[in-house]
């Protein structure tokens, strides 16, 4: 097949800021790659390492986690918890051989539709450059 590799990207977006930011990107008709599948969570703090690993196990080539800017969290500090969790998750996926560059954390507020579109475009291009996650086949 000579078709260009199209990555599968799973995006976790918090209900209060980032999901609204993604919505704004859509209603403003901004263009961004269709590779991302967004999963809405109540808070980025709810995203556990297990979700990220499960996404990779089920065929994701990249995972993007987005939450409110520090200080803006609807639950006060959920996004800070998320930042801490993503730090160890990054190490975990690196040790597992997935590669830490396949996980990205970004702060996107409800008014930042264009930032959301930019982040998704940039991340998709990066993952496209990295190629498919090897090891989906059983070794």
């Amino acid at each position: 097949m000579s078709e260009e590799f199209e990555p599968n990207i799973v995006g976790f977006a918090c209900n209060w800021c980032s999901y609204a930011g993604a919505d704004l990107a859509g209603t403003s008709r901004m263009k961004y790659p269709p590779n991302i599948r967004i999963i809405r969570v109540m808070c980025s703090g709810r995203v556990s390492p297990a979700f990220i690993l499960k996404a990779f196990q089920m065929g994701a080539d990249g995972v993007l986690v987005t939450g409110c800017h520090p200080g803006d969290c609807h639950y006060i500090a959920g996004n800070l918890k998320c930042e801490k969790t993503m730090g160890t998750t990054r190490k975990l996926i690196d040790v597992l051989g997935i590669g830490e560059e396949r996980l990205r954390l970004e702060w996107v507020s409800a008014s930042e539709g264009s930032k959301f579109a930019d982040v998704v475009t940039d991340f998709t291009n990066r993952i496209r450059g990295l190629g498919p996650l090897s090891g989906k086949s059983q070794g």
Partner: peptide, 23 residues
């Protein structure tokens, strides 16, 4: 427990991903 993180770690070791477990 822990959202199944340990179980997923075990299952991911069934693939041919190159681990870096000797860190």
């Amino acid at each position: 427990s822990h959202d199944g993180v340990m179980n997923t770690i075990m299952e991911l070791q069934l693939t041919n991903l190159q681990q870096k477990r000797t860190f």
